[in-house]
Amino acid sequence: MVDLPLRPDLLSQQAEADGRLPRSAAVPFARLSAWREPLETLEAFLTLIRAVHQCAPQAVAGWLLCGLCGFAGSTHPHEAPVRAARLTCLVAGQTVGLTPQGVSELVLSAETGLGQARKIGAIRAGLGR
């Protein structure tokens, strides 16, 4: 199997042929190497997310999972949850119509929650729980 290049026009055609389900057009986004140029990849990913949301909103979660595998996995494991939260917030912004300010607030909340979860995990680990 060969991945399609990250060209939104080609990926959109393939996604349409796949019924907008996260199939062959979604595969490149699950690869770590696709996220070496994160801004370019993110732009292509969000373009497809918008199209998927319009035609098959039930498929957005599957597309998000593909994106999360590549995007979050392309960094140090300690940073993966923060990257996953950021991508999830960006997708939420594209699918529920959040303003840029709303997305920023959602990202900040997610990062704060992850930071608190890490502290709780560290405390529990220190207590032997």
Rank of each mutant, 00 (worst) to 15 (best):
R7L: 05
R7E: 10
R7W: 02
R7V: 07
P8A: 13
L10A: 03
L10I: 05
L10T: 06
L10M: 07
S12A: 11
Q14G: 01
A15V: 01
A17V: 09
A17T: 11
A17M: 12
A17D: 14
A17P: 00
R20N: 12
R20T: 07
P22C: 10
R23H: 08
R23I: 09
R23T: 08
S24K: 10
A25E: 02
V27Y: 11
V27D: 10
V27Q: 13
P28V: 04
P28E: 04
F29L: 01
F29W: 00
R31F: 03
L32D: 05
A34M: 04
A34Y: 00
W35A: 00
W35Y: 03
E37M: 03
P38F: 10
P38D: 12
E40D: 13
T41G: 02
L42Y: 06
L42F: 03
E43H: 05
A44Y: 03
F45Q: 01
F45H: 03
T47V: 06
L48C: 02
I49E: 02
R50L: 04
A51D: 12
A51P: 01
A51L: 14
H53C: 06
Q54I: 09
Q54A: 15
P57I: 09
Q58S: 15
Q58C: 04
V60D: 12
A61G: 10
G62Y: 09
W63V: 02
L65W: 07
L65A: 14
C66H: 13
L68F: 11
C69S: 13
C69N: 07
G70W: 00
G70N: 04
G70T: 05
A72Q: 01
A72R: 00
G73L: 05
G73D: 11
S74P: 04
T75D: 08
T75N: 06
T75K: 02
H76W: 09
H76V: 09
H76C: 08
P77H: 07
P77F: 03
H78Q: 10
E79S: 08
E79H: 03
E79W: 11
P81M: 13
P81S: 12
V82W: 09
V82M: 11
V82T: 14
R83M: 11
R83D: 12
A84D: 10
A84R: 09
R86P: 02
R86N: 12
R86Y: 08
L87G: 00
L87S: 01
L87C: 00
L87W: 02
T88F: 09
T88K: 05
C89S: 15
L90I: 09
A92N: 08
Q94T: 03
T95D: 14
G97C: 04
G97S: 05
L98W: 11
L98K: 03
T99H: 11
T99M: 13
P100T: 06
P100D: 01
Q101Y: 04
Q101S: 11
Q101H: 09
V103Q: 10
V103L: 05
L106H: 06
V107G: 04
V107I: 15
L108P: 00
A110E: 07
E111K: 01
T112W: 11
L114W: 01
G115I: 01
Q116A: 15
A117R: 14
K119S: 14
K119W: 09
K119Q: 14
I120T: 14
G121A: 15
G121Q: 15
A122T: 12
A122P: 06
I123S: 08
A125W: 07
L127V: 06
G128S: 06
